[in-house]
Amino acid sequence: MSGIEGKVAVVTGGASGIGFAIATEFVDRGASVVIADLNQESVDKAVAEIGSKCSGFAADVSSSADMDSLYKEVMARHGRLDAVVANAGIGDHGALGTITEEQFDRTFNTNVKGVLFTVQSALPFLTEGSTIVLIGSTASIQPPRGMSLYGGAKAAVRNFARTWIQDLKGSGIRINVVSPGAVDTESLRSALGQALGEDKVAAAVKSMGEDNPVGRIADPLEIARAVAFLSSDESSFITGVELFADGGLAQV
């Protein structure tokens, strides 16, 4: 038994990157997964790759109406909801003095409002033993220069969890945060390629991991395994924690 076998999970931002890895890991462990992402074509492509125990839904996490519709569809398809992973997020850079209102709204709408609506809309369908995992970031405590918007949004996510476990006291619903450092995703390599040139991507990825005690950045699967543990019955007495899945970077 995997601790999540037979469960029904929703993973937002599940069409690519960390979210795709989480959805794949859940299915591999015997769960049924509904992924949500903005673009229907990307959702359909991911579902086809993950397999028959995965289905998809196009939704904007910053829209409470979209999230309400998502969970109604999940209940129609599966009749239950056991695990929610609020993974959808975006990053934006800007030093103080250059940040625009558009950047602020875009970052906080997805990374903060989106987490709120992902969780709040799910509550009517969650029961004792259900789990919620929020995807944070080491930027919540160690934001790099120019990333105050992203770091501030992820700090809000941590404090959501710390408050919500009090709001849900006695419900049997657990909430935890998994905070990765740098993760070797296609989007990271694409961004590095655009900024530095494709020929320098491998060296840049290697350099990003040099200050990490493990000596490298994470594979998305390693983040997915941490999320699977906190979504499983094996972590039944763990709630309100922020687990830094970052190779020790936040500890030194």
Rank of each mutant, 00 (worst) to 15 (best):
S2L: 06
S2I: 00
I4Y: 05
E5V: 12
E5G: 10
V11W: 13
V11M: 08
T12N: 02
G13F: 10
G19H: 09
G19C: 09
F20H: 13
A21M: 08
I22Y: 10
A23H: 13
E25D: 15
E25T: 15
V27M: 05
A31Y: 07
A36I: 09
A36M: 10
A36F: 10
L38M: 12
E41N: 12
V43K: 13
D44T: 14
D44I: 10
E49N: 09
S52R: 11
S52A: 14
K53L: 13
K53H: 13
C54L: 09
D60K: 15
D60Y: 13
D60P: 04
S64T: 02
S64L: 12
M67V: 03
D68V: 04
R77G: 01
R80E: 14
A88W: 07
A88L: 07
G91T: 04
H93G: 00
G94Y: 06
G94S: 09
A95G: 06
A95N: 12
L96Q: 08
I99T: 13
Q103A: 14
F104D: 04
F104S: 06
R106Y: 07
N111W: 03
V112K: 09
V112S: 08
G114T: 08
V115T: 15
L116M: 09
T118W: 08
Q120G: 01
Q120T: 05
S121D: 06
S121F: 05
L123C: 06
L126Y: 03
G129K: 08
G129P: 02
I132E: 03
V133P: 01
I135H: 05
S137T: 03
S137L: 07
S137G: 06
A139R: 00
A139P: 00
Q142T: 08
P144H: 12
R145D: 01
R145G: 00
M147I: 00
Y150E: 08
K154F: 08
K154R: 07
K154V: 06
A155L: 12
N159V: 00
N159A: 05
N159I: 00
N159E: 10
A161M: 14
R162G: 11
Q166T: 07
D167H: 14
L168Q: 10
K169E: 09
G170I: 00
G172M: 04
I175T: 03
N176Y: 13
G181M: 02
T185F: 05
E186S: 13
E186P: 11
S187V: 14
G197S: 07
D199I: 01
D199Q: 15
V201A: 07
A204G: 10
V205G: 11
V205S: 09
M208I: 15
M208R: 15
G209K: 13
E210M: 14
D211E: 13
N212T: 14
V214R: 12
R216M: 11
R216V: 01
R216P: 01
D219M: 12
E222A: 11
I223P: 02
R225V: 10
V227P: 04
L230I: 08
S236P: 02
T239N: 09
L243F: 15
F244G: 00
A245L: 12
G248R: 06
G248L: 08
G248T: 05
A250P: 01
Q251Y: 15
V252N: 14
